[in-house]
Every structure is written in structure tokens, then in C-alpha cells.
């Protein structure tokens, strides 16, 4: 039963991800990406990671994609003003995505032994209580670093969008 669900979800994820890249209309791309995000959230639910699934939907589908659609709708995107993409840029994009995948796989590999520890202790390591304790005790410093990073980028965005005062 779960396996069938997994295969259906995987098919939707890969199919919509492909269509995101393939479709010509940027708005259609964005909508396919939203569907893809939802099926990824479904994958999280299959692992019983409720918190991760919900936060994924709120942050990606609910905030980021809404903002993206918002800007796409405001822009008048036509065929003529599409930026030309030379072959070396496409190659660089594929290459950097491959490197990112490599980093993610290695990170997941190192996370494996930690997970086995939780599984053997029979603790619900997906619950918010355990997650919060681990994030704010063991991984306090990296967690705060991430939040500082987000704050810095937010301040940067505000600075860029601010009107320059005439002297």
C-alpha cells in the first residue's frame, strides 16, 4: 500500500519537475513547481515527518511560490525579451546542480548513524518536542548561524529596495 503511494508520488514529483523546466510559459512552470512541492511534502508524510511536511508547505508552497507567482504576474514576459542562454551557461547550471546533489547525499549519509540511534531507542524522533530539543541544544550554533544568515539577506533586500534620497 505505502509502496504504491510512494511510486505515485515519485511519478508526480518527477513529472511536474520535468514540466517545470520544459514548459514555455513561466506561470505554468511556477504552477508545476507548486504541485511538485506538494508531492515532496507527501513524501515527507510517508516518513511520518509531519512537522517537516507542514513547514515545507507553509514556506515553499505558501510563501515563496506565492511571491514568485506575484512577481511573474506583474512582469509582462514575452518571447522577444527572453534572455538568450548560451550552451556553456546551461552546462554550468547542470554541473552546479550535480555538485549540490553530491553535497546533499553526503550530508544524508552522515546523518544515517544518528537516526539509527533514535530508531533503536524507540523514540518518536519526528515529533516537534524532540526536534526542538535537538535543534536548540545540540545544534544551537549552526541554527543561530542560519537565522543570522536569513536576517542579513532580509536587511540586504530592504536596503536594495529602499529609495535613494536625493541630496
Amino acid at each position: 500500500m505505502l509502496e504504491i503511494v510512494f511510486y505515485i508520488l515519485s511519478a508526480i514529483t518527477l513529472g511536474t519537475a520535468f514540466l517545470t523546466v520544459y514548459s514555455k510559459n513561466p506561470i505554468h512552470s511556477a504552477i508545476y513547481l507548486v504541485v511538485s512541492f506538494f508531492s515532496i511534502a507527501g513524501h515527507y508524510l510517508l516518513f511520518n515527518a509531519q512537522f517537516l511536511a507542514m513547514v515545507h508547505i507553509i514556506v515553499y508552497a505558501g510563501a515563496i511560490m506565492v511571491l514568485l507567482l506575484f512577481t511573474l504576474m506583474l512582469m509582462n514576459l514575452n518571447k522577444e525579451d527572453e534572455v538568450s542562454k548560451p550552451i556553456y551557461i546551461k552546462f554550468a547550471a547542470v554541473f552546479s546542480a550535480g555538485i549540490l546533489a553530491l553535497v546533499l547525499i553526503s550530508a544524508l549519509k552522515t546523518a544515517q548513524p544518528e537516526m539509527i540511534e533514535y530508531v533503536s531507542s524507540n523514540e518518536d524522533y519526528q515529533s516537534i518536542k524532540v526536534l526542538g530539543k535537538v535543534l536548540l541544544n545540540e545544534y544551537m550554533v549552526p541554527f543561530e548561524f542560519a537565522s543570522v544568515l536569513l536576517l542579513v539577506s532580509m536587511i540586504g533586500a530592504v536596503l536594495i529596495s529602499k529609495k535613494e534620497e536625493k541630496i
Binding site: Q50, I57, A61, V66, M73
Partner: peptide, 25 residues
């Protein structure tokens, strides 16, 4: 009785705007 009921509500709330956005566009 989800463990994350409130997050669920916020999640559904945040995707509610898609109906308006997609239909209007």
C-alpha cells in the same frame, strides 16, 4: 488529532490564495 494541527491550518491558509491567484490570472 494531528501533532501539528496549527501548522496544518497555517499551511492550508497559505495555499488558499492560489485559488484567487490562478483563477484571476
Amino acid at each position: 488529532d494531528l501533532d501539528v494541527s496549527i501548522l496544518y491550518i497555517f499551511g492550508v491558509l497559505s495555499i488558499g490564495v492560489y485559488g484567487i491567484m490562478i483563477g484571476a490570472w
